[in-house]
């Protein structure tokens, strides 16, 4: 599973479609949430060097620019044992929101240093680093209190999601299991629609069963019946609505928003 923008920009001639949201989508979602929780228009974006740092920030910035906001990127070295000087830079920017885009270890360092510096604004980051483990590794509840984590989320509560939960016997299936479930259903439906069990058939007809209106189905068995009856189907799965762009990227995805409250991760919403 990759969210890197460059994957679908390869000349794949339509052979590629993915359910993992790309960084364009994630960058925009990050920015929208930062704008919302901070209520201000100045964000400082801190992230280590990764293949998706620049593209995530570019899309983050587009969203801020659209509302007349300002944002600045600082790419830090995630192997540095202290990020004090980097935090000084962030403090000088007078941001009302800092987006921390690193992984668990460097985000730990960063949040400790932000606390020491007395940063009063909002902190938002990806849910793979802002989570319960972070609260524990930072060690000081006040330093993480109020920080937000957000992750692409499966369509919690949907029929597809419930089916995955039953299948893998987990109360809350992870997004990746949900995506795999959707991959299989979509492949089966596309082959049924094309009446041809080949890769070519999947490539040509996947969008005919995944989007464009019609009878909502959340599994292949129901979908096969509908297709056999000659009805148009629109698959709505466990990971999300599963609608794809021309390039093969998912058009929308739900995010799970959480916030550290009293040292525990509390669900804000899934949207």
């Amino acid at each position: 599973m990759s969210g890197a923008d460059s994957i679908t920009q390869l000349p794949h001639n339509g052979w590629l479609a993915r359910t993992q949201p790309n960084t364009t989508l994630q960058g925009r979602k990050f920015a929208e949430f930062c704008l919302e929780v901070s209520g201000g228009k100045r964000a400082f974006f801190m992230m280590p060097q990764t293949p998706f740092t620049q593209s995530t920030f570019n899309n983050f910035k587009i969203a801020y620019d659209k509302v007349g906001g300002a944002t600045e990127l600082l790419i830090y070295d995630d192997k540095k044992p202290s990020l004090r000087t980097e935090v000084d830079q962030a403090m000088r920017y007078n941001a009302d929101c800092i987006f921390v885009g690193g992984y668990l270890t460097d985000t730990t360092v960063l949040l400790r240093d932000l606390f020491r510096a007395g940063f009063k604004g909002k902190i938002v980051g990806p849910g793979y680093s802002i989570n319960q483990k972070l609260v524990e590794s930072v060690g000081q509840p006040e330093a993480t209190e109020g920080a937000y984590g957000m992750l692409p989320s499966p369509q919690e509560g949907s029929n597809g999601w419930k089916k995955v939960a039953d299948l893998i016997k987990q109360a809350s299936p992870d997004p990746f299991s949900c995506q795999i479930y959707d991959h299989i259903n979509l492949a089966i439906l596309a082959m049924a629609q094309a009446k041809d069990a080949s890769g070519q058939a999947i490539r040509d007809t996947v969008r005919a069963v995944s989007q464009g209106g019609g009878e909502k189905v959340d599994n292949a068995v129901d979908g096969l019946k509908a297709i056999a009856a000659g009805r148009k189907v629109d698959y709505d799965g466990a990971s999300g609505p599963c609608d794809f762009t021309e390039l093969g990227d998912i058009t929308d995805v739900k995010f799970r928003y959480e916030q550290v409250k009293a040292g525990k991760m509390a669900l804000v919403r899934i949207a």
């Binding site: 668990l104 270890t105 730990t108 400790r112 606390f115 020491r116 510096a117 007395g118 483990k133 524990e136 590794s137 930072v138 060690g139 000081q140 006040e142 330093a143």
Partner: peptide, 13 residues
């Protein structure tokens, strides 16, 4: 693999 914090109060600067 998790990071382990020490039992020291994190103080403001």
């Amino acid at each position: 693999n998790e990071a382990r914090g020490f039992n020291v109060p994190l103080m403001r600067d």
